[in-house]
Design a protein around this nucleic acid. Sequence first.
DNA 1: CGCCGAATTGTTAGCGCTAACATTGCGCAC
DNA 2: GTGCGCAATGTTAGCGCTAACAATTCGGCG
Lengths: 341, 341
Amino acid sequence: MSRKPRLRSGSGVTMHDVGQAAGVSAITVSRALHSPERVTPALREKILQLVEQLGYVPNRSARQLASARSHTVLVLIPSLSNTVFIDALAGIESVLQPAGYQMLIGNTHYSDSEELALLRAYLQHSPDGLLVTGLQQAEAFSRILAERQLPAVYMMDLSDDGRPCVGLSQEAAGAAMTRHLLQRGRRRIAYLAAQLDERVLKRLQGYRQELTAAGCHDPALEWLNPAPSSMQLGADMLDALLAAHPDCDAVFCCNDDLAIGAIARCQQRGIAVPAQLAIGGFNDLQAAAWTTPPLSTIATPRFAIGAAAARLLLQQLHGQQDSGGSRCLDLGFQLQQRGST
Amino acid sequence: MSRKPRLRSGSGVTMHDVGQAAGVSAITVSRALHSPERVTPALREKILQLVEQLGYVPNRSARQLASARSHTVLVLIPSLSNTVFIDALAGIESVLQPAGYQMLIGNTHYSDSEELALLRAYLQHSPDGLLVTGLQQAEAFSRILAERQLPAVYMMDLSDDGRPCVGLSQEAAGAAMTRHLLQRGRRRIAYLAAQLDERVLKRLQGYRQELTAAGCHDPALEWLNPAPSSMQLGADMLDALLAAHPDCDAVFCCNDDLAIGAIARCQQRGIAVPAQLAIGGFNDLQAAAWTTPPLSTIATPRFAIGAAAARLLLQQLHGQQDSGGSRCLDLGFQLQQRGST
DNA sequence: CGCCGAATTGTTAGCGCTAACATTGCGCAC
DNA sequence: GTGCGCAATGTTAGCGCTAACAATTCGGCG
């Protein structure tokens, strides 16, 4: 008996201790906590009181190890510095937290390989499900999901292959802004893009379709820059664009960051917005309403997307398998017309 | 033997399986993975190869249960929608990730009680350490930390009671902006604040000290609003302030959100900034450089704070107890003078 | 009055891993 | 050769919890 006692993590109070204090076995405590209907009300009351009194904190690892359920959801987003994803995160949190699930947040930095690495790393936590941004992942990514039969919901876009997803048609949204600019009488409409993730490219598709249909598509007006998006970049790209194409009469920026930089640069250079140049953004960030002039943009329901995606995932986790029909939720978008167009 | 096999979470490949494939015992696999020097190089190589081949994924719960270490750090921040904390988060991630630690992120919504509840909830994961925003927590909060001897590092501010912390003097920073406005010849300097967390109030202290020293402190110019901060609120508060005090010649906003709203409203109302009214912000968010005129503000090293705090915590975790001396790290701040002052 | 079934509680075993101790093997000094 | 010491690997037990099955209790009914 000279064995050293093991280090205890946590407060050291176990279910067994609580049970002993209550004069019952550990399993009864477990039941009192997790399936109250299987324990006499009086006893349950007593146990809950002792839990409080002894400061018992359940050990999640033990629970998970024994039950093979982690009550944990892995959330993969491309960036922490982009409000878009933070908003979605808040929506997710608002659903998972009350449901007793905890989220593990992985930041993929817009990289497929990092995304895959994160998935591998976080698998150690055996998450019960997965919320991913976008539809395009590394090939091994989907393989792992399939192997483990890990339920996943895809966010921010719409799939046509039956994968459950919650989002909006990036293509349609790109088309909508382009159409808006056409309706305002513009014909030389540029597309300014950075980061170039799948969503940005789909918006580009929408832009192309509309312009082609209107007979004024000019590939020279597509300015694509793989660098991370920023206001500085928006300003710089605007300068470059106007230097090459002074006849340009509208700019569709793939997101509000670029647009805010562009609009500020116009202000600095004395270019009249929208008289001389109309500017459109995407996402409707808070700051979009406070530029001079205020920015016209596409409002996207990020919070709602996150929340709905989380709900959809929980449905899958709780057995309501395929409730039939398409599990793709289109939450749409809204054109916010303001002073810049 | 009629017992049903338990559900397996994960791929089902265990350390034991890998060991068997390699002709060794499970513990050797464990050692090959976690303390390579205790295993012959050739054998280790073979094991690593099998791990890859069989798709073995360690089970973190089991590891944690057996070793009483979770390799997990709990990070508590007041808000996800405030870039300030997201930046700190990124700094934390940049240190913890490479060190093999994972972060659990708790959003306290600026509430002491929610913070306490989150701590309780996340204790179930038995985190090895804790990174908290601010110095003021619920009373029970510190008690729990003490009971469990949970190492913690406090972020964003400086303590004088020996708690390890990484941040800047909010008071000094508030004083610095105020001094700057005084130096620009202003005498009727208002303080516009929202959210009213401890940091905002400390900046207020600095503001008061400077103005009192300069003999032009007027409590009527302190506008404190407990509502969450936003650009809209900044604009509204500016209107209210000027309606009550048309003689006001400078406004120090407790953060850039308010300031951007205020500056935009001035633009809309034709108030000349800075000629008629100087405006100062706080934090130096990206958008601050792109208002018209660009916003003067106090730049705070959020990323560095997060990173340093994480490093400090890791030091504590790895036994280098008190390396003596104050464990308070002052990373300072920097006045960014731009067009608005 | 004994037996049945439902409700309540208990027993046993094991989830996958690692700390602690035990064993084996091997080179080397004498 | 014998024994010593160290390095490499194995054995045992147990972390805290819960699934599955077992036992007990109790009310009701023929």
